[in-house]
Design a protein around this nucleic acid. Structure first.
Lengths: 340, 340
DNA sequence: GAATGTTGGACGAAAAACGTCCCGCTATGC
DNA sequence: GCATAGCGGGACGTTTTTCGTCCAACATTC
């Protein structure tokens, strides 16, 4: 059963949403016994006219009887709702989890894919796909998108698919070199995204470990300056989330910095900043690009991360409070909720 | 798996068709390796523009790569097609059967539901539902619909559902009393259909076994005349199909008539006429209503019958050659094909 | 019997789908 | 090396569908 639904998800991307909506309508009517169109509209959160079209479909399917007092489920409608009840949980169980995470962290939108990225490569891929879909749907013409690095972001980029060219969009790395391997660098990812969409991109090459003067000098370079300005004006920011210890190791931070991080309770990392349990910034990487205030000013900030092991890091960054959208997996979401 | 698809069929009636179409597109591309839009359009029988929208969806799902030489399946597209191959047969197997029956009898359209009405009540219901859907979709404003009797027709009527009122339609019995029990009479069915749709109906009460004079007299009655005229002008005719022996028994024909039927090789019955193996009319019931020439003149003639046992009767009536649409079940269709 | 809430019809505005044509590009065959 | 056929994709006017909004007719309830 699982398999056919997976296939359908690919072949008819918004099938499940329609299905869920219609089930919700039937379910509501089932609960109320008999209910009027307007009342129903507010309770399932549809405009009256849209609901009406839905009802026409359901009526045409013979699932719905309608009288002057309101609408009732027909026998086969009632039967359908009852048959669906167990299936619904499996099909749409994640929606409930999404809603829970959304309210817990006060986000605009949460997308959760099934599984655990820690143990399943398939889930990792799906996480990437889901992330790319979110980004695609968020894009409007002319947007500048700042992306971060990391393996999750790389997978997101490799899964990105667009129905049409996006010639007037820009992809830029959110921050300069952060010591990642080249495949996972923000620069690489920005360029891949651009390549896959027909959009344009800029790279930002800032050597690591610059002295303050050198940094200031390089920032005066017109072409560096230009990219940085573009980055800072990004309307959309997409970033992964790491746990602090792992990131520190991978980026080969100095031992004393690591100790400092531990002392400050650094738990999570995102766009070059380290966060403690409460979402407070306790450290920042020394490189150019997006500053905290730019993140606050960005239109849409999208965080992508999954896996049970990243649960607390996700929670920590979400507490930071400037993300709008979180894309994660079942395990990550469940774990994050335990750290609210 | 079966179950969830059944549910989806009810909740999203044209889901499977869309799914099939998209699969067909992917499959074709898979076969060709790389193919252009225009060539593809003719080969899957879509206009260029419509195909293009479909392709955009598929591309957005990352199933499709596109180059200057044409389109190719992406890795995950190829994977999807291969995964689907076994499933397709189960999901869309009936479409192939439909097409086979359609060409075998030169029909406009064939709808086949899964199962065997002889052994499954569920299939009987589905047959009724399918029939009602066909009728609904065939209806246009102002149409007069002539319906016959029988248990299948009764189920069709009881399953009829419409999204909106049909105030300017008429339902009439195709022919007068044919000695059926009241639930299965054409009159009853016409009235039920009218009731379920908000349409109007007329009944035709003609006693059985009238003498010729009495028949002529009653036909002069203005209100009888009026109904008969309306029947004869019906744009849509819907009828069941019975096997001759059973119908003769049920209608309590005289023994000599039965013998005559046997002698003439009567195999099937529909709208009061008996047909032999070749679809030739060998007998007609003496009652008022639709004549053969009216059937020939009707816009749409819909036959509904299922069950393995009715296979040859179905074949016989289809050979008669004036049906446009056949609604049957898997067993009936398979059996009918063996009698082509 | 009035008031309230119901469905369903109607209609114009907005959006989506569609048919059609064209352009620039590339692979291929000569 | 060049002509050419076939490719994807952009563009645009038209048609169809969807949607918001208002209203009429009707049943139910108080």
């Amino acid at each position: 059963m699982r398999k056919i639904v997976e296939i359908q998800k690919k072949l008819l991307p918004d099938l499940l949403q329609v299905m869920e909506k219609r089930y919700e309508i039937l379910h509501r009517i089932h609960l109320e016994g008999t209910i009027g169109r307007r009342t129903l509209a507010t309770s399932v959160d549809l405009t009256e006219r849209v609901l009406r079209s839905e009802l026409e479909v359901l009526r045409a399917q013979g699932l719905l009887d309608t009288a002057a007092a309101g609408m009732t489920l027909s026998e086969s409608g009632r039967q359908l709702v009852e048959e669906m009840e167990p299936i619904v949980k499996e099909l749409f169980g994640l929606s409930a989890l999404e809603e829970a995470v959304r309210t817990a962290f006060g986000l605009k939108r949460v997308i959760i894919v099934a599984g655990d990225s820690d143990t399943s490569d398939h889930t990792k891929m799906e996480l990437g796909r889901a992330g790319s879909r979110v980004l695609r749907d968020s894009l409007t013409a002319g947007d500048v998108v700042a992306v971060m690095g990391g393996s999750t972001m790389a997978r997101m980029a490799s899964q990105f698919a667009t129905p049409s060219q996006m010639k007037d969009n820009w992809f830029v790395p959110a921050r300069g070199g952060l010591g990642e391997s080249v495949d996972y660098q923000a620069n690489t990812i920005a360029s891949e995204l651009a390549k896959r969409t027909g959009a344009r991109y800029r790279m930002l090459h800032v050597p690591d470990h610059l002295s303050e003067e050198a940094y200031q000098t390089i920032m005066q370079e017109p072409n560096v300056r230009e990219v940085v300005d573009m980055i800072r004006s990004a309307r959309i920011v997409v970033h992964g989330i790491g746990d602090a210890a792992t990131m520190a190791r991978r980026r080969k931070l100095k031992d004393e910095t690591k100790e400092e991080l531990v002392k400050d309770g650094a738990l999570a990392e995102a766009f070059g900043y380290y966060f403690d349990r409460n979402g407070k910034v306790v450290h920042r990487m020394a490189t150019a690009g997006l500053r905290l205030e730019d993140i606050e000013a960005a239109g849409i900030v999208i965080g992508i991360a999954g896996g049970s092991s990243k649960g607390d890091a996700i929670a920590s960054v979400m507490r930071f409070g400037h993300d709008d959208v979180l894309v994660t997996d079942e395990a990550g979401a469940t774990e994050a909720l335990r750290h609210v």
